[in-house]
Write a protein that binds this DNA or RNA. Structure first.
Lengths: 354, 354
DNA sequence: CGTATTGTATGTAACGTATTACCAACTGAC
DNA sequence: GTCAGTTGGTAATACGTTACATACAATACG
C-alpha cells in the first residue's frame, strides 16, 4: 500500500533520495538523511513494488519452466532441481503444467511473454516447434530440457538432454543379453520427440541383434481420452494386461518411463505373473521410487541434477549475453541401472525358432 | 518489443483507440477503423504488456502457492490440481518450494508480496505463523491447505484441510482391530502442525484402546541434515530399520505419509521382514503410487481434488470481495483405504502380557 | 575575492498501458 | 437553420519506479 512517495514525504526528502537509499547508492549521503529514510521505510513497512520496478527496468529475473506435469515424480523432481539452480543465480522460476497439449503450451508461452519473461525452459512438447517459432522470433529464448531438438533450429537457444536412443538401446541390449527375444514396449501417446527416440532406439537394437521388431508388442495409449501423466501408472497397467493376454506374449517389457514401469509391474502381478521370474521390466528415468519399490526397478538413469544445473546456466548466459565458449547443445549419456526387475526369461523359448 | 504506440501509428489511429479494441470496447466503432487496428496488431504480432497493464490496474490475477516440495508426489499432484482449479477461474499460479524452511518461506512471501500478489495458498509451514503475520497485516490473504490453523488467527483468511487427527485415529484403530499391540510411528522432522496432529491422533487412539504409547516406537528424523521431502522414502527406510532392530520391535507401523510408507516397506524387506505377514504398514495421503505398489498400500485418503477446488474458490472469493456464506474454514473427513499392506500380527504376541 | 571543486539532494522524463474527460463531426427534427 | 443527440476518436494523466541531469550549498584553491 505504501509507495516510495509516502516514504519520501514521511522522511522529508525527495523521491529520488529514497530510491537512492533502496538501491544502495548512499555512498555520498548525509548520515542523518540516510537514517531518516530508513526509519521511514521501517515505519511504513515499505516494500518496493516489483512490478513497477520491472516496468521501468525492462528486466526481470524470472525464468519460465514448462513441463508435462509436476504430478509425475520425474518432473516434480526436475522442477525442484531447476528452481534450486536458478535461485542460486538470483532467478525465480515460474512452473507451468502443459499436460503435453500444444494449445496449453502456446497459451503459457504467450502468458510468459506478456509478463516480460524472455527465457524459458521447455521440458516437453509435441514434436513440432512451430507453435513456438513466433515467440522465439520476438525475443523469447528457449532452452530445451530432456528432449531432442530436431526441427528446432532458430527456435531453441540451448539444450541439455540425454541420448534417448542410447538409453533405449542400453535397456534393450540388457534384456537381449538376459536371453529375451520377445520384448514389448509400453508408452502413452507418443507425441513427443523423446518418446519417439526411445521407441526408435529399441527397434534399432533389436534389429542389430537380428531380431525383427513385432508391431504387436508395441503398446501405445491413444490420446483420445486426454490422459495426462497423472495416469501414467494406470496406463502402464492397462498396457501390460493387453500385451500379456496376447497369444504369444512378451517375456520382457521396456516402458517409456518409470511410472509406466510401476504400473506394468502391478498389472502383471494382477494376472499372476511374477516380476522378474515371469516378466522382466525396464523403466526409464530412475525416479526415487525406482530404488525403493518391490522389486527394485531396473531402469535407465538420467543425470537430472547435472542437467538442471546445465540448462539453467546456459539459458541465463544467453539472456545476459554472457556467451560462454561452452557448447549450446549438450547430450549426456544415460546409464543402465540394473536392479531386480529383470532376469532371464522363464523357459527356453518354444515359440521362437530363430 | 512492439508497444501499443507502434500499433496505433501503423493503424493511423490514436493509442486510446487501440486500447479500446484490445479491451473489447469496439461496440460503437467504425468497422473500417476496427479492421485496420486488428490488422496492425497481427502484423506486428503485438501482445499487451502484462506488467504495464498490471501496474496501471493494480490488479493481478495470480495466486501464490507455497508447498514443501513438488518432488513429493502428493504435493506435485496437489499443485497440479490447484493450478487447474485456478486456471478455470482465470488465475495463474506461482508455485514455490519452501522445503519446510521458515526463512525460505518468508523470502517467498516477500517476493510474492512485492509482485503485487495478494493471495497465496500455504501448503506447509512450521507450526508458528509469526513470520507471516506482517504480510497478512499488509494485505496478503493466506489460505491454508491441508494443515491445521491453530495460532493463525488474523493471519489465515480461509482454510481447507482434513481432520489429521481423525486420519491417524482411523489408521490406528484399523491396526488395533487386526490385533496389533505394538505400533510404531515414523516421520521426518515433526515441525509442521499436520504432522504433530497425526502423531497425537495415534496416541489418543492407543490410549482409548487401553494401550500405553511406547516412546521408543516413535521414530522421528532430526532435521539436523536439512532433509527435505525428496528424501522421505529414504528416511522411511532408515526409520523402520531402527525400529525393527529394537529388542521388542513393533508388529505394525503408521507413517506420516505414503512416501515414508514406501520406504518403510523397502527397509523391512531388506531385513527379511515380509509385508504384511511380518509387518503391517499404513501410510497417509493415498498418492497414486499407493494403489500400484507391491503390496498395495493401506492408507488414509485425502480428497485432494475437492480440497484444491475449495481452497481456490474460497481464496478467490476473499480477494474479489465476493464473500459467500460458506464457512471460511472447512475440515473434511479422511477415509481409510484398506489394501494389502496390513494384516494380523504374525503370532500370538508373546511379549505383551495384557 | 572570484572561480573551481566537491558533496548532497532534487527535478524530470521515461517505462507501456488504461481511464477520464473531452472534442469534432454528423444526423435528423422542429 | 439551429439545437440536441449520437457516433467516432483524441489528449492528458496516473500507476510506482529509476536514471540522468541539474541545482545549490559549502569548502578549497589560486
Amino acid at each position: 500500500m505504501a509507495g516510495i512517495k509516502d516514504v519520501a514525504k514521511r522522511a522529508g526528502v525527495s523521491v529520488s533520495t529514497v530510491s537512492n537509499v533502496i538501491n544502495g547508492r548512499h555512498a555520498k549521503m548525509g548520515a542523518r538523511t540516510l537514517r531518516r529514510v530508513q526509519e521511514a521505510i521501517d515505519d511504513l513497512s515499505y516494500t518496493p513494488n516489483a512490478v513497477a520496478r520491472q516496468l521501468k527496468s525492462g528486466q526481470i529475473k524470472t525464468l519460465g519452466l514448462v513441463v508435462p506435469s509436476v504430478a509425475n515424480p520425474f518432473w516434480g523432481n526436475a522442477s525442484q532441481l531447476i528452481e534450486k539452480a536458478a535461485l542460486k543465480r538470483g532467478y525465480q522460476v515460474l512452473i507451468c503444467n502443459a499436460e503435453r497439449e500444444p494449445e496449453l503450451e502456446a497459451t503459457y508461452f504467450s502468458s510468459l511473454y506478456a509478463s516480460s519473461i524472455r527465457g524459458t525452459i521447455l521440458g516437453s512438447s509435441p514434436v513440432s516447434f512451430d507453435h513456438l517459432r513466433e515467440h522465439a522470433r520476438n525475443g523469447m529464448h528457449i532452452g530445451a530440457f530432456d528432449r531432442t531438438t530436431q526441427g528446432a533450429e532458430g527456435v531453441v537457444t540451448c539444450s541439455v538432454s540425454v541420448d534417448q536412443s542410447l538409453g533405449a538401446r542400453l535397456a534393450t541390449r540388457h534384456l537381449i543379453g538376459l536371453g529375451h527375444r520377445r520384448i514389448g514396449f509400453i508408452s502413452g501417446p507418443i507425441g513427443t520427440s523423446s518418446r519417439t527416440a526411445r521407441l526408435e532406439g529399441m527397434r534399432q537394437e533389436l534389429e542389430k541383434a537380428g531380431l525383427t521388431p513385432d508391431p504387436d508388442l508395441v503398446w501405445l495409449a491413444t490420446n483420445a481420452t486426454g490422459f495426462g501423466d497423472s495416469q501414467a501408472a494406470e496406463l502402464g497397467r492397462t498396457g501390460i494386461r493387453e500385451l500379456l493376454t496376447l497369444d504369444d506374449p512378451p517375456t520382457a517389457v521396456f516402458t517409456v518411463n518409470d511410472m509406466y514401469a510401476i504400473g506394468a509391474c502391478s498389472g502383471a502381478r494382477e494376472l499372476g505373473f511374477r516380476v522378474p521370474e515371469d516378466l522382466s521390466v525396464v523403466g526409464f528415468d530412475d525416479i526415487i521410487m525406482a530404488k525403493v519399490m518391490e522389486p527394485p526397478l531396473t531402469t535407465i538413469r538420467q543425470p537430472v541434477e547435472q542437467m538442471a544445473e546445465l540448462i539453467v546456466k546456459k539459458l541465463i548466459a544467453t539472456l545476459e549475453g554472457t556467451e560462454t565458449t561452452d557448447d549450446a547443445h549438450v547430450v549426456l549419456r544415460p546409464e543402465l541401472i540394473v536392479r531386480s526387475s529383470t532376469a532371464a526369461p522363464p523357459a527356453p523359448n518354444a515359440q521362437e525358432k530363430d
